[in-house]
Design a binder for these strands. Sequence first.
DNA 1: ATTATCTATAGATCTATAGATAATGC
DNA 2: ATTATCTATAGATCTATAGATAATGC
Lengths: 211, 211
Amino acid sequence: MPTSAPPANRFERRRAATRQALIRAARQILAETGDTSVSIQAIADRADVGFGSFYNHFESKAALFDEAVIDALDEYGRAIDERLAGVDDPAERVAFGVRLSAAMADTHPEIMRVLRHRGLGHIHSERGLSPRALGDLETGKASGRFTVSDSAIALSALGGSLLALLDLRLHQPRRDSEEAARSMAELMLRMLGVPADEARDIAHRPLPAHG
Amino acid sequence: MPTSAPPANRFERRRAATRQALIRAARQILAETGDTSVSIQAIADRADVGFGSFYNHFESKAALFDEAVIDALDEYGRAIDERLAGVDDPAERVAFGVRLSAAMADTHPEIMRVLRHRGLGHIHSERGLSPRALGDLETGKASGRFTVSDSAIALSALGGSLLALLDLRLHQPRRDSEEAARSMAELMLRMLGVPADEARDIAHRPLPAHG
DNA sequence: ATTATCTATAGATCTATAGATAATGC
DNA sequence: ATTATCTATAGATCTATAGATAATGC
């Protein structure tokens, strides 16, 4: 259920709040250390929820963490979608997508750290950026702007490079991240077949403003 | 110590064998599930080593798994090095490196599965492929074959894309992996500034044979 | 009356260590 | 004599559940 119906009554709202508190706690833990061997007790404490409540909502720790990743992916996808709303050129969309994602490491650190830890298994997921990016790749191929034989391979390269960029930020925090993101965006466009000078130009255009 | 001295006497050989058995077990576990919450007891059992021996060699589970990743990285670096021994052109080295890595998913599945689970944090490591790849990038830049402004960003893109390619194999096992690796190699060369037709040509050259 | 949450706890599991055993060095 | 390995175990921790409590629906 992409957008589940809002809770009908107070009972269901309370239940949803407990569930959401657990997911939030799991997201925090995934962002901080990524160490999922933390005890269920510790998770419940962090969520400020009774220990036994955990089992009303999740079968196991793994199930909770999986849900937490999906939650972060969805939020990530929505945020990028909003910022790219008015952008039509697939080359611009790809370049902006890379740079906006890097910028989100500052503005939405929790989401991006979750993805840094768990994103590799979700590059071709139905959630998050992948379906949007795949659409852009196909549009670009159709219009002749991109020349790639296999969109899935290109999407792998895009997603993997983006994760590596997030990781680089973590290991070299002093680096100019806006500049690094522009360089990466330029590389991605060249990879997709955009001429070098044009790739450089597009990668340096000002980012679209918020909604 | 990249290549530590060989054990001097039988005592030290026995000790080294126990340590290596634990590392092997950890590598297997990292390759199979990547789930490091497995008990030390289970690790020792798998290594066919007494439980208490673990603490003669490692301070904690995390320390063992870290060593296991480094062990796999070193073996990976050596294997690729051997196959690329006679290749001088940096463009060929990059393209072959990508394709050989993909091929190693079949010939050395344990190593590549370990890297798939843990490689993201080691893209800029001193061990493994990174120092070699960085050298190729610099050589290529110096000779004008590559046009990249920042080698670290290019290395991130290369490493991340490679990990994503390994992940893709896992999720789409029916795909022709040799063909996928060629496509990825072609994308990487274009990204680095090699003209599209040349990139395509290089990515389709026969791989260098074993030693 | 129903349902989720919370507290308490039994049983299982896990870690770290102590002490006995076995193998090698000199 | 020295050193690593192995076995046994104490103490801590963790999971899953049972039963009591609190909140809401009708």
